[in-house]
Amino acid sequence: MLELRLLQGSLLKKVLESIKDLVTEANFDCSATGFSLQAMDSSHVALVALLLRSEGFEHFRCDRNISMGMKLVNMAMMLKCAGNDDIITIKADDGGDTVTFMFESPNQDKIADFEMKLMNIDSEHLGIPEAEYQAIVRMPSSEFARICKDLSTIGDTVIISVTKEGVKFSTKGDIGTANIVCRQNATVDKPEDAIIIEMKEPVSLTFALRYMNSFTKATPLANIVTISLSSELPVVVEYKIAEMGYIRFYLAPKIEE
């Protein structure tokens, strides 16, 4: 038996909105640790890892580890039927072939049950080793989203370069080139407006903007995004989910042939 009650149901709605275009179907894993997912996009270029820790749920009952295969557009469609202030409960029986999403309005005057069919998904779980990164950039998530969107009007790829001067996002396309430099500014009034760069050594890597733009769909989940860069390693674009966990996107840098 599985029963997970999430007071801030909007978090789950936002999580689905952020990954449903990247990943078609995925197994949601539930254990004492929490509710998690690891999935690749259909071309196996990007990987998403989600964790919602059990402590973040108002009620968390998971009698045995369970893996539930879901089609993400269908799950997103059902969660769209929940109000932004609704409490969402995820319920499933051991060995069952359905999952139920229950939506409760804040004053309990409306309760809805949506039952969705589960599916069997063969997915390979990848081991993601802890890594030392050459540079870690923390910046407002809205700023990063704006930069990716702006650059994708000019080119298909972004070169992210971190030096002691700051972080530079560059692209080029048929009509011209664009460079956006963000300097470290730790002394802003609000901590969420800060750009903080931890650099061990300079790094410059090229990424497909199509994927970066897809990752920025998680912007409503967090004010701050963390971008961890190392040559020879996939970039990690991380959005922390308030008090609960994270959503991390991994993308390998493009290599010159």
Binding site: M40, S43, H44, V45, A46, L47, E124, H125, L126, G127, I128, P129, T157, T206, A208, L233, P234, Y250, L251, A252, P253, K254, I255, E256, E257
Partner: peptide, 14 residues
Amino acid sequence: GSKQPAITKFFSKL
């Protein structure tokens, strides 16, 4: 030109 490696090249299967 540049090549996009798959993510599976970097992380091993569990």
